[in-house]
């Protein structure tokens, strides 16, 4: 597995501290820098970020970890983290989907229960994708994904109708909502979560005291307790990532079996990436 980290840095700050040839300019004011995670310059950027932080500022504006695998590594994985790449808005709640908030955690906002069919502006779903998700974490799949899921005899999820928010009453659509029904997998404490790779939220500001949320962002690959394994082809983690803020909600991670990986690759499905996940 090759792991790189991408930073977006204000050009003004990058010019002061980084080699002018490092990274590429985006629109003149932002510099994109991608480095292997073990590169010495990553340590330098982390130091700068801490120093900026001490005066209430930040050196980098955003970060992202990219993990790429060989085909052999992905084929060897017992369990995979399905990452939905295609995201869109407006969210279900903005389109008329109703949620029962009565069991929502008062600390972290997790636990709202969807109480109606998912209603979306389906024109906003990226058309070329087979799996996509709203910024609130509602996952939808194409009819060809649904057919492959059913014909392959895959287990662990229901596919329910997605309604299109029309001018009058909601209309049927070709999209389906992926509702995971299998038992959640227990996320191991080996999974690293935090605010960013250099700030693991030592104060637990983004961890729910009742244990619903592992952290604001996923930093490492996922580690899952083997004892929580069953025969489902798709499952979610028991702990969530993120927070309740505006239209955003805490989200679990999706875990899939090699059988579902094979079905996705055979389609081939569009709109996702895979990472290895590990049993402990």
């Amino acid at each position: 597995m090759r792991e790189t980290i991408e930073f977006r840095i204000a050009e003004r700050d990058a010019r002061m501290h980084l080699d002018p040839g490092l990274g590429v300019s985006l629109g003149g004011s932002i510099r994109k820098v991608v480095l292997p995670v073990d590169d010495a310059r990553v340590g330098r950027i982390a130091q700068l970020h801490r120093a900026y932080g001490e005066r209430g500022d930040a050196f980098f504006l955003s970060w992202n970890l990219h993990r790429s695998y060989t085909e052999k590594e992905l084929r060897a994985a017992e369990l995979l983290n399905l990452i939905v790449r295609a995201r869109f808005e407006p969210t279900g709640a903005m389109c008329g989907t109703t949620y029962d908030e009565s069991s929502t955690c008062r600390h972290c906002g997790a636990g709202a229960r969807q109480a109606s069919d998912l209603v979306l502006d389906t024109r906003r779903i990226p058309k070329s994708k087979d799996i996509a998700q709203t910024i609130a974490g509602e996952v939808v799949v194409s009819s060809r994904f649904a057919t492959a899921f059913r014909e392959s005899g895959l287990r662990g999820a229901e596919l329910r109708p997605v309604l299109h928010q029309g001018r009058g009453k909601p209309l049927s659509s070709d999209w389906l909502q992926l509702i995971v029904t299998s038992k959640p997998r227990s996320l191991s404490t080996r999974t690293v979560a935090g605010n960013n790779p250099f700030d693991l939220d030592e104060d637990d500001a983004f961890r729910c005291p009742l244990g619903h949320i592992a952290g604001l962002n996923q930093i490492s690959e996922l580690y899952v307790e083997r004892s929580s394994l069953d025969d489902a082809d798709v499952a979610v983690t028991d702990k969530l990532f993120g927070d309740r803020r505006g239209e955003l909600r805490p989200e679990p991670r999706l875990l899939i079996s090699p059988r579902l990986r094979d079905a996705l690759q055979a389609l081939p499905a569009q709109g996702y990436a895979l990472e290895a996940a590990h049993f402990v």
Binding site: G27, D57, A58, I83, R85, N195, N196
Partner: peptide, 27 residues
């Protein structure tokens, strides 16, 4: 919108802390 997406790309499933968000908005 394009500038926001240069600073914090859309659809990566990560979230800024409130302090990071302030810096993004300022940028």
């Amino acid at each position: 919108t394009q500038q926001f997406r240069r600073v914090w790309p859309y659809g990566q499933g990560r979230r800024p802390t409130p302090q990071e968000l302030q810096k993004l908005l300022l940028a």
